[in-house]
Design a protein around this nucleic acid. Sequence first.
DNA 1: GGTCTGACTAGGT
DNA 2: AACCTAGCCAGAC
Length: 104
Amino acid sequence: MPSTYEKIYSIVKKIPYGHVATYGQIAKLAGIPRHARQVGYALSTLNNDETPWHRVINAKGEISGRSNPDFVHLQRMLLEEEGIIFGNDSRIPLEKYCWKPEKS
DNA sequence: GGTCTGACTAGGT
DNA sequence: AACCTAGCCAGAC
C-alpha cells in the first residue's frame, strides 16, 4: 500500500494547469485531513520534476517560505507562467484559483 | 525505538 | 490586522 507521501504526490499531480491548492485541501483529498504539515514536508523531500509542487500553497494563498527565498521566487515565476496573477502582497486569490476537485 | 523536525492550520491575544 | 501558541502526525536519525 502506498505511503502517505505517495498519496500526497498523487493528489498534487492531479492539480490542473492554472489552478492551485492549499496544503490542507490536498491532505484532505489524500484522505489525511490532519496532515497538512506532512504535505508540505513531503514536497520538500520531493526530488522529481513530475510533481507540480509549485501549485501547492498555504491556506493564506501565499507561498510558504521554507529556508530558501530563491525557491519562493521560482515558484511565483512558475505560477505566473500558468496564468496565475499574484496580488500586491505576493498573494494568490484563492477564490479565483483554488482548485475545485471534481468528485472522483 | 525514543526523540526531533517540519513547505501547515486554526484560534487566541 | 499582525503576531503567538498549541495541536497534529509521518519520516529521519
